[in-house]
Computed example of a mutant assay.
Amino acid sequence: MTAIATLGSHCSLQVLKGAKDEGLKTILVCEKKREKLYKRFPFIDDMIIVDSFKEILEQKCQSSLEEKNAVLIPHGTLIAQMSSEEIESIKTPMFGNKWILRWESDREMKEKLMVEAKLPIPKPVPTPADISKMVIVKRQGAAGGKGYFLAATEKEYHEKRNQLISEGVISKDETLYIQEYAAGVLAYLQFFYSPLNEELEFFGVDQRHESDIEGLARIPSEQQLKSNKVPSFNVIGNSPLVLRESLLENVYDMGDSFVDAAKRLVTPGMNGPFCIEGVYDENARFTSFEFSARIVAGTNIYMNGSPYYSLLFNEQMSMGKRIAREVKNAEKSNQLDKVTT
């Protein structure tokens, strides 16, 4: 029987608990420094202890996963700590489409896929000299918001960039991506696409809490201006959100368009969990500034199921459990190759 494996970080507890609930064996690739934490949880059957997650690239680790008949579930830590080439070199079957993770990690490719999907996106700003209004500056890949900053002028861009370089938050050689800042209510739309059923499922919505940009709102403006620190967008946690029902049709339309675009641009397409991330403005219009082509940590708030999944399943269904259910159904029907790459 197939086992479910993942890296010990991000949403590993949800993934492995869901797999255990589905009757599958569970494997955690765990850094030695976190072994004590993960030993607390009884649903983890096996641990592969490593000094660094990079060891999953080594033959010894991959042979161990192969012996255990493992499917690897990718999440944000995999993307944050490894290059696209390294991820694509992993021989262990990976749930979903490992090739699309390159499109998530590269800002230009990400923008191309979002345009292909006809998602409403903020205007990209080609160079710092083109800044004429408030922009947000982002790093490549899954940085969890760390190193992002706002700027309203070219001068402010260079000042903040140089400060973050001096603090060691970003490197001077990093290619940063600039886009116009979209204001509104943050909404991270979580989906699951099943290639077995050829159906899109809307899983839920979360909001992300970023430190210390959120805390600035509680400080008088004159004190904010005196601060010498570049505010951080580092994600600390997540909270649930339920949308007005009238918005759901557009949510499904965006999800369908994204799945269709992914099929055209990066075979076999957007299989499994993904997230379209953005804001709703005062007219309830959505602007999407990101996508994540795998499970997102915001699904952790729905370990007992989301309001939207309660409409689709007459049982508690986390995203981790939904992934395991797909793997189990694929194995039963001899279609594991349809849900892994």
Rank of each mutant, 00 (worst) to 15 (best):
A117E: 12
L196C: 12
G215I: 00
L37M: 15
A152V: 14
I56T: 06
L164V: 11
R161Y: 05
T2G: 01
M254V: 15
D260E: 15
E198W: 09
I79K: 00
L72Q: 02
L16I: 13
L336T: 10
Q81E: 08
I121K: 11
L37E: 15
V125H: 03
E85M: 03
V185A: 09
Y148P: 00
S211F: 07
N234A: 01
Q14E: 15
P122Y: 11
I131D: 06
S12F: 13
L312T: 10
C61Y: 06
E167K: 13
N238F: 09
V115R: 14
A152D: 14
P220I: 02
R107I: 04
G272V: 12
V125M: 06
V230W: 00
K36T: 12
G255I: 11
L176G: 04
S292M: 13
L265E: 04
E66W: 08
N228I: 14
S105M: 02
I73K: 01
K60E: 11
G269P: 12
Y302F: 14
G278P: 05
K54I: 10
R264C: 15
Y157D: 12
G144Y: 02
Q335N: 13
T92Q: 08
A182K: 05
D212L: 05
H10G: 10
N162S: 13
A129S: 13
G204F: 00
K91Y: 07
R34A: 12
L247R: 03
G141N: 02
L57P: 03
E55R: 05
I323L: 09
E85P: 01
E174K: 05
Q190C: 15
S288G: 12
A182L: 11
V296R: 10
K155A: 15
L57S: 04
H209I: 04
S306N: 09
R244W: 06
